[in-house]
């Protein structure tokens, strides 16, 4: 009977396996395979009859690396800004608000997803234009004198990505905050901790899984985003996803594009590992520093 259950479970996971094989592993393997190829002539995007690491050399020599650092800066800043905005908001929504209103607020957070990603981003282009709404408002209240000069800068891209990815940060945070047991906060207060101490020593450590998944959900797609930068970035706010896309579309050099994509994936993974390692290190140091000896000797 145990074996039978196992078999049933295995068959239930079949769609997942089929999906992974078809739509993740096979295309990914093809991308890696193409990255060792080359572009034989103007009309052929890739050929793999001679394999080499040359494309990776071209990736590291070309404009990829400076673009990668610029993108990393936008992505890390964007993730941090999303976190700063989302933590208080998600906490308020999950803890402070009357539970009757929570579904409505949650729905409001999701409303932007009803509109296409591209259309929302173009909306910002209209708002941020020198003759746009933001310019008029800032001039009217006297913060600004003359047309707003932000469209097609890195600042516009930064604003665009925070706007586009914020819900992806709010949702996991809301879920963890909502599941926290209120009695823990009460206990913390009873033991003499203030509001801030309670928040940072009790609530935040319990919410860490949500914070981590929120940061990953925002950071990883953000590193590959090229749409926001294409619409709002202009010449100064370009991101690395745009040069990968260019190789596949206008330059028609799939070998180089594939090598760029693989390099980008490797670097993103590396960044996530480094940040995770740093985080664990800091946490270990803090725990050691805060170590509390309750004085119960064995």
């Amino acid at each position: 009977m145990a074996r039978r259950t196992q078999r049933t479970t295995a068959s239930l996971s079949f769609p997942v396996w089929a999906w992974l094989v078809f739509f993740v592993f096979t295309p990914l393997a093809l991308v890696v395979w193409y990255s060792f190829g080359y572009k034989p002539d103007l009309f052929t995007a890739v050929s793999t009859d001679q394999l080499s690491f040359d494309r990776y050399g071209e990736v590291l020599d070309g404009v990829f690396m400076p673009m990668f650092w610029a993108t990393l800066r936008i992505a890390l800043t964007g993730t941090l800004l999303c976190l700063l905005v989302a933590v208080p908001f998600a906490y308020w929504m999950a803890v402070k608000v009357d539970p009757r209103w929570r579904p409505l607020l949650l729905a409001l957070v999701l409303v932007p997803f009803w509109t296409n990603f591209l259309v929302r981003t173009i909306g910002w282009q209209v708002i941020l234009a020198p003759s746009g709404m933001a310019s008029d408002v800032l001039n009217a209240i006297g913060i600004l004198d003359g047309p707003l000069d932000i469209l097609y800068t890195r600042g516009a891209v930064q604003l665009g990505v925070v706007y586009n990815y914020l819900p992806l940060m709010i949702l996991p945070l809301y879920v963890v905050f909502e599941r926290l047991d209120p009695s823990q906060r009460e206990a913390s207060r009873d033991l003499g901790a203030g509001r801030w101490r309670t928040f940072f020593s009790v609530t935040v450590p319990d919410a860490l899984p949500g914070i981590a998944s929120g940061c990953l959900l925002v950071f990883i797609p953000l590193m590959g985003d090229y749409l926001t930068a294409s619409v709002l970035g202009g010449a100064r706010g370009t991101m690395v996803g745009q040069i990968v896309a260019r190789q596949f579309t206008s330059a028609q050099n799939w070998a180089l594009g594939a090598a760029m994509a693989v390099t980008l994936m490797a670097f993103v993974l590396l960044t996530v590992l480094i940040v995770a390692a740093l985080f664990l290190l800091v946490r270990a140091v803090v725990r050691r520093a805060r170590h509390l000896d309750l004085g119960v000797s064995p």
């Binding site: 572009k39 103007l42 070309g62 404009v63 400076p66 097609y152 800068t153 010449a235 330059a251």
Partner: peptide, 20 residues
């Protein structure tokens, strides 16, 4: 469409990297 097409593409890429 000439043999210079690849070179032109790489020039545009350089210009875009240096722009702004």
């Amino acid at each position: 469409l000439t043999d210079a097409q690849d070179r032109l593409t790489s020039i545009l890429e350089q210009v875009q990297a240096k722009a702004g």
